[in-house]
Amino acid sequence: MFRRLVSSPLTVFGFLVVFILVITALFAPLIATHSPTEVNIVNKLQPPSQEHIFGTDEVGRDIFSRIVHGTRISLKIGFLVVILSFPVGTILGAIAGYFGGIVDQFIMRTTDIFLSFPGIILAMSIAAALGPSIENVLLALVIVWWPWYTRIVRSSVLAIKNAEFIESARALGANPFRILFKEILPNSIAPASIQASLDFGFVILAAAGLSFIGLGAQPPSPEWGAMLSSSREILREAWWAATFPGLAILFTVLGFNLLGDGLRDILDPKQR
């Protein structure tokens, strides 16, 4: 597996980016050179220098330190949204695919309701209804995200549910619960788990977007989207205030995407 990982430079790049992000998030206080929230009006809007390598913002906070601490927020959101919506979506998809009939109809029509809205709009309205905060963004994104896993898992369950080894389990007298969790899920979860690894990036992007329009993390918080938002007014005098949080988002999404793509190739048993 390792050899196949290094044989694709893009995957290695994605892996490295994600690795750096995780390290940054874990050791944020050690890596940051300044406090992410300490206001220092005297030093406001300093261009990148040795003291402030990414410069300072409109109230003199060190942008590098804010981005480092922002990594924690973004990764936490990405992780929690995926980890909460993945099992819900997976189990519902497996139930819909395996049992079929009215259960299938009910679950799939429910996902249709969620999928008929553009995800970010639906998340916006949920977050707006619940009130702007990072927790509500998390909840909104979970609500928007699970139907995708349901669809993916359902289709792979449909593809294998009549396989002979499933029938053999039934002939042995296995109950549906056992068949679902021991026979079907292990064989149909791979596509959804690859989707989940890709989704880390998209969730982080969506959370940053919601924070950008003011529905997510609130001002003193060093969230990347919120930083971008507050840098809009000073974009002309201080290019660095918008550029570095933007690049952070870009590399994060790119890194998770490349890693997800690489994982798809590695996990595909046909290439083994």
């Binding site: 002979e164 080894f165 053999s168 389990a169 042995l172 007298g173």
Partner: peptide
């Protein structure tokens, strides 16, 4: 029952041990 296709009748993600133990466990 013994099935026709020996490539489809064994769960590809289970070891032979767990495939053979499953009926006894059930």
């Amino acid at each position: 029952i013994v099935f026709q296709d020996p490539y489809a009748s064994l769960n590809p993600r289970s070891t032979i041990r767990s495939i053979l133990e499953a009926p006894l466990k059930i």
